[in-house]
Measured scan of single mutants.
Amino acid sequence: LGPKYVGLWDFKSRTDEELSFRAGDVFHVARKEEQWWWATLLDEAGGAVAQGYVPHNYLAERE
């Protein structure tokens, strides 16, 4: 699936296409579209919880 990303700060969605998340949440990014990335929010087991657009500057690649 490629690298995983972690949320740096809490983010509250403003549209139906955006995905709310908390700092520390883990994502798989499917598409990078300039300022907004289409991402899947993952649970602790790595299963998909939700999908939506997230601001790229709120995520960091997980080491």
Score class of each variant (00 low, 15 high):
Arg31Met: 08
Asn57Gly: 09
Gly47His: 15
Trp36His: 07
Trp37Tyr: 08
Gly47Arg: 15
Trp37Phe: 06
Gln35Asn: 14
Arg62Asp: 13
Ala48Asp: 09
Ser13Lys: 10
Ala45Leu: 12
Glu34Phe: 08
Leu42Trp: 02
Phe21Asn: 00
Trp37Cys: 05
Lys4Met: 15
Asp10Leu: 11
Gly24Ser: 02
Ser20Arg: 02
Gln35Thr: 12
Leu59Val: 04
Leu8Asp: 04
Ser20Asn: 06
Pro3Ala: 11
Glu61Gln: 11
Gln35Ile: 11
Glu44Val: 09
Leu8Cys: 13
Trp9Gly: 06
Pro55His: 07
Glu61Ile: 15
Leu59Lys: 01
Trp37Arg: 00
Leu59Pro: 04
Val26Phe: 11
Arg22Ile: 08
Glu17Gln: 14
Glu17Ala: 12
Glu44His: 10
Ala60Gly: 09
Leu19Ser: 00
Tyr58Met: 07
Lys12Leu: 14
Lys12His: 14
Gly7Met: 05
Pro3Val: 13
Leu41Cys: 03
Tyr53Lys: 11
Thr40Phe: 12
Ser13Phe: 03
Leu19Arg: 00
Tyr5His: 03
Thr15Ala: 10
Asn57Cys: 15
Gln35Arg: 11
Thr40Ser: 07
Arg31Leu: 07
Arg14Ala: 12
Val6His: 05
Trp9Pro: 04
Thr15Ile: 08
Tyr58Arg: 03
Leu1Met: 12
Gly52Gln: 01
Tyr5Pro: 00
Ala60Asp: 07
Glu33Gly: 14
His28Met: 12
Lys4Asn: 09
Glu61Tyr: 10
Asp10Phe: 09
His28Lys: 07
Leu1Cys: 14
Ala30Cys: 13
Ser20Leu: 04
Ala45Met: 13
Leu42Gln: 02
Arg62Thr: 15
Arg62Ala: 15
Trp38Ile: 05
Ser20Met: 02
Trp38Gln: 02
Thr40Met: 11
Ala23Asn: 04
Lys12Met: 14
Arg14Ser: 14
Leu42Pro: 00
Asp16Trp: 08
Gln35Lys: 13
Arg22Gln: 11
Glu63Asp: 14
Glu61Asp: 08
Ala60Phe: 09
Ala39Cys: 07
Ser20Val: 03
Pro55Leu: 06
Ala23Ile: 06
Val49Arg: 08
Ala60Arg: 12
Gly7Lys: 01
Glu44Leu: 09
Ala60Ser: 10
Asp25Cys: 06
Ala39Lys: 00
Val26Pro: 02
Glu34Thr: 10
Arg22Cys: 12
Gly46Glu: 06
Phe21Leu: 02
His56Ile: 10
Trp37Pro: 00
Gly47Pro: 02
Trp9Met: 12
Lys32Asp: 04
Leu59Trp: 04
Phe21Gln: 00
Arg22Ala: 09
Pro3Asp: 08
Thr15Lys: 10
Ala30Val: 15
Pro3Met: 11
Leu1Ala: 12
Val29Ile: 09
Gly24Val: 02
Tyr58Gly: 06
Gly2Gln: 14
Trp37Lys: 00
Glu63Met: 12
Glu17Pro: 05
Leu41Ser: 01
Leu41Met: 09
Ala23Val: 07
Leu59His: 02
Trp9Ala: 09
Ala39Arg: 01
Gly52Ile: 05
Gln35Pro: 06
Pro55Gly: 02
Lys4Gly: 06
Gly46Tyr: 05
Pro3Arg: 10
Val54Ala: 01
Arg62Ser: 14
Arg14Cys: 14
Glu63Val: 13
His28Gln: 10
Ala39Glu: 01
Leu8Tyr: 04
Ala48Pro: 12
Lys4Trp: 13
Ala50Asn: 07
Ala30Asp: 14
Asp10His: 05
Asn57Met: 09
Arg14Leu: 11
Arg62Gln: 15
Arg31Val: 08
Gly52Leu: 03
Gly2Ile: 14
Phe21Cys: 08
Arg31Gln: 07
Tyr53Phe: 10
Phe21His: 00
Gly52Trp: 06
Gly7Cys: 06
Arg14Glu: 13
Ser20Thr: 09
Gly2His: 13
Ala48Gln: 09
Glu18Asp: 05
Lys4Val: 15
Ser13Pro: 05
Gly2Met: 14
Ser13Val: 03
Gly2Ala: 14
Gly24Gln: 02
Asn57Pro: 02
Glu17Ile: 13
Arg31Ala: 07
Gln51Tyr: 08
Glu34Pro: 11
Ala45Gly: 11
Ala30Thr: 15
Asp43Cys: 02
Ala48Arg: 07
Ala50Arg: 10
Pro55Glu: 05
Arg31Cys: 11
Lys32Tyr: 08
Lys12Cys: 15
Val6Thr: 06
Ala50Lys: 10
Glu17Asn: 14
Asn57Leu: 08
Lys4Arg: 11
Ala23Gly: 04
Arg31Pro: 02
Asp43Trp: 06
Asp25Ser: 07
Trp36Gly: 09
Leu41Val: 04
Asp43Glu: 00
Val49Thr: 06
Trp9Asp: 05
Asp10Asn: 07
Leu41Ile: 06
His56Ala: 15
Gly47Asn: 15
Gly2Glu: 15
Trp37Ile: 03
Gly52Val: 04
Lys32Ala: 05
Gly46His: 06
Trp37Asp: 01
Trp36Pro: 00
Phe27Ile: 04
Ala50Pro: 01
Leu42Ser: 01
Tyr5Phe: 09
Leu1Tyr: 12
Trp36Tyr: 11
Leu1Val: 12
Tyr53Arg: 10
Ala50Leu: 06
His28Cys: 10
Pro55Thr: 04
Ala45Ser: 13
Glu34Arg: 09
Asp25Glu: 03
Asp43Phe: 06
His28Arg: 09
Gln51Arg: 07
Trp9Arg: 13
Gly46Val: 04
Glu17Met: 14
His28Tyr: 15
Glu44Ile: 08
Thr15His: 10
Glu34Leu: 10
Glu34Ser: 13
Trp38Asn: 00
Phe27Asn: 01
Gly7Asn: 01
Glu18Ala: 09
Asp43Ile: 04
Tyr53Thr: 03
Arg14Thr: 14
Ala45His: 14
Tyr5Ala: 01
Val29Gly: 02
Asp16Ala: 13
Pro55Ser: 05
Arg62Val: 15
Leu19Thr: 01
Phe11Tyr: 15
Leu1His: 13
Ala30Lys: 09
Lys4Ala: 10
Glu63Thr: 13
Trp37Thr: 00
His56Gly: 15
Gly47Tyr: 13
Lys12Ser: 13
Thr15Leu: 07
Ser20Gly: 06
Phe11Gln: 03
Tyr53Asp: 01
Gln51Trp: 09
Asp25Lys: 02
Asp10Met: 05
Val6Lys: 05
Lys32Phe: 09
Asp16Arg: 09
Val26Ser: 08
Leu8Met: 09
Ala48Phe: 11
Ser13Ile: 06
Lys32Ile: 06
Ser13Tyr: 03
Glu44Met: 08
Ser20Ile: 04
Val54Glu: 02
Val26Glu: 10
Gly47Leu: 14
Val54Met: 02
Leu8Glu: 03
Gln51Ser: 15
Asp10Lys: 02
Thr15Glu: 07
Lys12Gly: 06
Asp25Thr: 03
Ala48Ser: 10
Glu44Pro: 11
Asp43Ser: 07
Pro3Asn: 10
Glu17Asp: 14
Phe11His: 08
